[in-house]
């Protein structure tokens, strides 16, 4: 009896020690990975605080300066480009959600002719490189007056954002059994209520994750705003080019521009991290 107790105690102690080692190893691994993943960001912050003269110093010693920030944020209309980018990318995502979620619902629920062909057609918008279709779009936009307008860009961004949202959200709708909708109807909810009270909470993880990805793609888009806008509207991706002058590259200023450019994405990711992890892995809504 006594020995048994002792044996039990030692085994408990052993397993405790083992789990402590395991968690230490796990944390160490994660720390290493975090360092690896965050290094570019840290490097960018460091670059943004250096003067151009110190840029090529390999020694980790410099006098920090805010001159780059001064030059980019106050010296140019970079903020203007930031907000224009926000309007275009944000507008594109909003339009995608408003049009894409019903489209995804239709593709998931209704049975109509050529349904799969249509779904594939939507996906195929992502296949062609942007540079391939940009020239005809450019001529068309010139003709119908969409060149250099917010709406023109928002519209053409749908090529990037729509397929992603439709395909992810469609999968989520398919996971929800029709009977759940029917049960809600019998409970006395009208279709509109069923949609917002029952369906939307269930597709939320997928919707948030895919909308965020869509936003990032739209935010980072380069080819479309380069060709389809220029005078009135300038997105950040285009404006950033300005710091690469013909004679010299102002790395410090590029770093500041890049830091500002990634900040909304980083913030958004931090806020909806929870959904992001769950959102793109299917099977989250099984009852």
């Amino acid at each position: 009896m006594h020995t048994q107790m002792e044996w039990k105690e030692t085994s408990v102690r052993k397993s405790q020690a083992l789990s402590a080692v395991a968690s230490l190893a796990r944390n160490l691994g994660l720390t290493l990975y975090a360092l690896f993943a965050l290094f570019p960001l840290v490097w960018m912050v460091i670059c943004s605080l250096k003067t151009d003269a110190e840029m090529y110093n390999t020694v980790f010693r410099f006098t920090p300066t805010l001159s780059n920030y001064n030059a980019v944020l106050l010296g140019t209309d970079y903020f203007n480009a930031f907000f224009q980018n926000l309007i275009v990318a944000g507008g594109a995502v909003v339009l995608t959600i408003v049009a894409g979620v019903p489209a995804a619902y239709a593709l998931a629920r209704y049975d109509f002719k050529k349904k799969e062909d249509l779904a594939f057609q939507i996906l195929s918008f992502k296949f062609a490189p942007e540079i391939l279709v940009i020239l005809p779009i450019f001529t068309i936009f010139q003709k119908i007056g969409l060149y250099d307008t917010y709406f023109g860009l928002i519209w053409v961004y749908q090529l990037i954002t729509m397929p992603l949202v439709i395909w992810v959200v469609r999968g989520y709708f398919e996971e929800i059994s029709v009977e759940i909708e029917q049960a809600a109807q019998l409970d006395g909810y009208k279709w509109f209520d069923v949609f917002f009270k029952i369906l939307v909470p269930l597709i939320k993880p997928g919707l948030v994750a895919s909308a965020l990805l869509a936003f990032i793609f739209a935010w980072n888009s380069f080819t479309f705003p380069l060709v389809l806008s220029g005078f009135k509207i300038q997105t950040m991706t285009i404006t950033s080019l300005r710091y690469i002058a013909s004679d010299t590259v102002h790395y410090g200023q590029v770093a500041v521009a890049a830091l500002v450019a990634v900040s909304p994405e980083i913030l958004a990711c931090l806020f909806i991290q929870k959904h992001l992890v769950r959102g793109l892995s299917f099977g989250a809504v099984k009852g």
Binding site: E179, Q182, A183, L202, K286, G287
Partner: peptide, 9 residues
């Protein structure tokens, strides 16, 4: 419903 059709959330 045979498959319960409960609201998962």
């Amino acid at each position: 419903f045979e498959n319960y059709a409960l609201y998962p959330h």
